[in-house]
Every structure is written in C-alpha cells, then in structure tokens.
Write a protein that binds this DNA or RNA. Structure first.
Lengths: 344, 344
DNA sequence: AATAGGGACTTTACCGGTTCAGTAAGTGGT
DNA sequence: ACCACTTACTGAACCGGTAAAGTCCCTATT
C-alpha cells in the first residue's frame, strides 16, 4: 500500500501562507489560547484554501490523542452476516462515535489469542485510543492482557467475567428467570432452552439461571441444548427436542437469539405442530424479524442498538478518566403470537 | 483520548539491546536485504524479548504503507442492523483483509457530503491505504472526489456509475430480466416490484430493466414501488399492492431484498391470501432468512459474502498497481416454495 | 523611570520510525 | 600488493506534527 497522494500539503504550507510559524498553526487547530482572533482566522482561512488537515499519524506520533476505537469479533465470518445482533450493536456504537468524530476499527479474528495480539499491536502502535471487548468468556485471556496494557476498554459482559475492567452488561439471569416464570405461569411444565455457544460467559449464566428458575417454579421436564447461534443448528436442535414422544415433548422452547427462533418456527410447521397450540416459542434479542413471521414471535426484547450506544458512551467515560460498571435495561418480555397456554 | 501506555519501548531500545543501530532494526523488520542472518536473528530476538512492535504512526509518517481500508456507509444506523446484506458483505471483505493483516475502518455517515469529507481526511491523514465505495448513485460526488485524491478505491456498482474508478458489480439488469421471465413463464401477467431507495444507482438500473423485461414478455399490469429497504416499508408496499381489487391485483411480487419479502409474506397471511396460491413472492439477496420461513422464499440468490471477498481482492489489486472492473456472478434464481403458477 | 507582567508568537527539541549516503572490512582478480 | 567490488552496517536527515521554552513588545504598577 504505497501510492502517493496529490502533492502533500502540510502544516508548513499553511503556516507560510498565513504568514506565521508552524507552532501558531498548531495552536489554532487545537483551540489553545495564546493567539489573536485575527491571526486565528487567517490561519483557518489559509488551511481552508489549501485544503489542509492535520496528519493523524504525525499528530499521534507527537503524543496527541487517537480518534479510533477498536472492536475485534471472534466468530466465524459467515455467521456474522446472519446475526442481526452484531450489526445492530455496531450501529449503536457507531452512532455515538460519529458524534465524537471517531471511527471504529473492526476486525474479525479466529481466536482469542489472535485478538489479544491484535489489541496489543493496535494499542502499542497508537492506532486506537480504546477498545470494546465482546463475547466475554470465563477466564477470558483478553481481560488481563488489556489491563496490563493499561488501555481504556469496556468489557461487554457480566462484571464477574470482566476482572478490573469497566463492564456493561445485560442482566441475563433475571431475564431468563422472567421468561421461565412467564411460560410456567401460562401452564407449561416442560420447557426447553436452545442456547448459544457454551464457551461464552453469558451462556453459562443463562444456563445456570434457567436451571435455577426451573427448579424454583417446580418444572418437571427441563432440557437445554447448546448451538452455535445459527439458524441451521437452531433448526436441528428444535427438531431433536420436538421429536420426543408425546407427553415427554416440551411444550415451550426458549431460544437464545431470534434467528434460531425463526428456524424453530418453520421446523414446527414442517413437523405439523402448530405454534402456539402444540408448542410455544420464545425468542431472544427481538429484531424486526420477530414481527415479520406468522405467528409473530414473542421475545425477550432488548434494545441492542441502545446497548451499543451505552457501551460507546461508557468507553468515552473510561477514556475521559473513569466510568462505573453498570447493567443496561433488562430485556423485557414482549408477548406476541407464538406463546400461549399449552393445549389440554 | 490521551492515556499513557506502559513505558514505551521503541526501536531505539531494540537497537541498543541487539547492539546495532536503529537503521539495522528497520531493515530487519521490513525484510530488506543487507543484513547478515545472525544479526537479523539477534534483532528479532531482542524485539521479542522487549515485546516491541513498530509504531504505525511513526512508520506511516515516515512514508511507509498503511494497513487499513476505509468503508463508509451512508444509511440510517438502525436499518443496518436489519439488513443481512451489509454484515454479510463486510464479513466477506474482512476475511480477505485478515489474510493481509489489514483492518477495516468502518464509519456510518449521514450524507454523501460527509462521506466525501471523511474519505478525504482519512486519505490525507494517511489513515487508510484505500477505500471501498458502496451504494453508488447517479452522478455520485464521491467518484470525482476520490479520483482527485488519487486514492486507490473500488466502487461497488455498475461501471456507468463509477467514472474512472475500478468497479465491481452484479449484473442487476440480467437478474431482473431473469426474474421477470421466470414469473412470466409460470403464467403471471401482472407482476409488481417492491424496489429500494430510488437514489441508489442500482435501483434505477433494476427499475429500467424491470420495465423493459416486462414489455419484452408482454406483461399487462406492471407496477413498481420504492421503499427504504425496511421490513415496515416492505409490508406497507405489499399491503397497498395487494389491496387492489380482484383482477387488477398483481399475482406475483419481486422484492429488492429479503427482509421486505419476509414482511410481504406475513402481509399476505394477514390478508388471508395464500402464498404461492394467490400471490407468488420472489426475494432478492437470499440470506438464510429465506429458508427459515413457511413457505420458504424463492429468491434471486447471490453470494454476498463472496461479493465482499471479490471486492476486497480487487482493492488489493488496485493498490498493487491495477485491477480491471468486472462483474461478479449474476444472481441466480433459486425456486422454493413461494412461487408457483397463478391460480385459474 | 525602572520593572514586572502578560499577550502573541517563534524557536527548538522531540516523537519513532524510514531512507540513503557513507564507511569499514572482507573477497577476488591480476 | 594493489585495486575494484561486495557485504554489512552506521549516521544523519527527514516525515508532519506537538509542546515547552524563549523572544519581543506593549501596558500597568510602584
């Protein structure tokens, strides 16, 4: 990547044109005191006429701030396109960054080790001013690594996973409990859950909460399946759950995202089971998708875009000297057409 | 964004530790000739021991290449989360960048003017080594701007929109024609199209192609509606198209993306029309979504991930000295459950 | 009138790399 | 034994900014 831009216009040219020194131009552009109003104007005029803007490289080399935030995602590339969650989350982050004239440096990685190396080189290379860590796991190697670097960061996940980093999280345990209570209140005794990758910290939290909530309301048949979040695995899991003979078959299924719930819906249809008559389905994340199906999908609704916004704001807080860990609004149950009391 | 990293280790430290000059370290790290094997090894060992990596800022200031590719997207942030297209496209781009140890600099912008300014400052600030331009319009202001900067770029869109830039595009006209011919062959005489934003260049191309293809096969009732690509507008458009009285009502609808097609499916259901009995629906972009609905959606299928891959490869070609404009594979029709001959 | 203080700039020393013109030692040919 | 050529490496200039220290001049104070 070489390629030469049009003859480079630098701070020197601007200074010359405005009849001042480089230092003066620097002062003007950083809104620092010590310049006469008239001079300032002359400098800006000169810069505008020459189409100059400060080189970020030079600036950051000289020890100024960096206007980029890093986000590495460790999931297979093809899955990302399908999950409404990430794009929605990212768009929330972006909307805050944009206000601050910041950009997002995005990178897909294949392993956490790779991500650790990446964050380190981004930070050491002064490319980013802070980072967002997603998909936190138990004993996540990124946490100590980022702490050691002293890089401002926000960990998206429960504080128990985030070590000393500032964390922003959704209270999955409470939400799962609410979901289970709701289904139980409708009369369901046999509830299954199609969960996400076990490696992820929040999967563990949800799994434990589901078990506990199920015990709490005295459910009899409880089963949980782990998947990779894809529609295909969601369909497969649903098929295996619903293939159980009559009275053992779950009458309600809770999904960890909406893609899998949509897949579950068509599996039910293909097996000749009616939703919500024979089986109730409850989605998670509630993107627009849930309102586009027949029946519409009840979901644990969650403002993912707003989540991204909150995380980005928090990161700016951390960079600016400190921000507290905090949960975002707990997902709320939005009943729609896919949940009802079990038949009989 | 200030915050100081752990005491900085620089090239000087590495040089001192290896007992050579800065220049030698630079040579080693850029794999340039003129160093003895033993010295090279000593330098790398020293660097590893100190955990050093070259500062990108300093490096790019000193005139080396940049390992970042820019991508600005000009659509409302909330819409992005819903469109499988972009995330899929991006994941394709990423997968190539990763091979080259490059990162993607992503930014949502609100207007093309803002994007022009952004690309300019990214380029002038030596932040990016090249860019990808998406959502090309007629007389797109970004094209001359990028050409003037002399920045390597790939325009995603028909060459007629791309000026002198290297373009990569899908042959929408042929695909639309194929879709129309297919529906016509099934016996449909009254076909509607729910298109995307009129401002986008490819919408114009599809609209024109649709008209021409319709004329070509002698259709009688043809109507096209423009939307913003969202499920809501897709639903609204479908509702208004299907509200027409009996014999005037279209018997087939072609959508510009899959989200709208899914929305159309539930509108049909809510209006008591059977798919494909009363009306056939044909989607575009064919994400996993199309296989998750009942009936499954026939679609103009398109390897979006692969499209991203191709675009990224082409960009590296451009940066490396030249690459030809070329189309990617034309979307192919994948018939599924939502299309059939009209009743009667 | 002498001095202190402050505003408005300029000077200069980096920041951490790259690059290129040297230079010193080694090799081979005659 | 001398010269021409490599090979391996050093030193210094430079990239485009920032920041701290320095200069100059003008006004207010004692």
């Amino acid at each position: 990547m070489t390629a030469s831009p049009t003859p480079r216009v630098t701070i020197k040219d601007v200074a010359a044109r405005a009849g001042v020194s480089k230092g003066a131009v620097s002062l003007a552009f950083n809104h620092k005191p010590g310049l006469a109003e008239a001079t300032r104007d002359r400098i800006f005029a000169a810069a505008r006429e020459l189409g100059w803007e400060p080189s970020v490289s030079a600036r950051s080399l000289a020890g100024a701030r960096v206007d980029v935030v890093g986000l590495a995602i460790c999931r297979p590339a093809r899955l990302l396109g399908l999950e409404p969650f990430y794009m929605d989350f990212i768009s929330g982050v972006e909307s805050v960054l944009t206000e601050h004239s910041c950009s997002l440096l995005l990178r897909l990685v294949r392993s956490l080790e790779e991500e650790v190396g990446l964050q380190e080189s981004w930070w050491k290379g002064r490319i980013i001013g802070g980072a967002i860590l997603v998909d936190l796991r138990a004993d996540d190697p990124r946490v100590p690594a980022v702490e050691r670097l002293g890089m401002p960061a926000v960990a998206v996940g429960h504080p128990s996973l985030a070590g000393g980093l500032t964390a922003v999280w959704t209270d999955d345990a409470t939400a799962v409990t609410e979901a289970v209570r709701y289904l139980s209140a409708l009369g369901h005794r046999r509830i299954a859950r199609v969960g996400g990758a076990v490696a992820l910290g929040h999967s563990g939290i949800r799994t434990a909460a589901f078990d506990e909530a199920a015990r709490g309301v005295g459910l009899v048949g409880v089963s949980q399946v782990a998947t990779d979040f894809s529609g295909d695995e969601g369909a497969r899991a649903t098929r295996s759950l619903l293939s159980v003979s009559g009275s053992e078959r779950p009458t309600a299924i809770l999904y960890d995202n909406d893609i899998m719930a949509v897949a579950g819906l068509s599996v039910a249809a293909e097996m000749g089971l009616s939703v919500p008559g024979d089986v109730s389905l409850l989605a998670w994340d509630d993107s627009q998708l849930c309102r586009l199906t027949r029946p519409t999908l009840s979901a644990m609704s969650h403002d993912v875009h707003g989540f991204g916004v909150d995380v980005a704001r928090t990161l700016f807080g951390v960079i600016g000297g400190g921000a507290e860990s905090h949960p975002v609004a707990t997902p709320v149950l939005v009943p729609r057409g896919s949940t009802a009391p079990p038949k009989g």
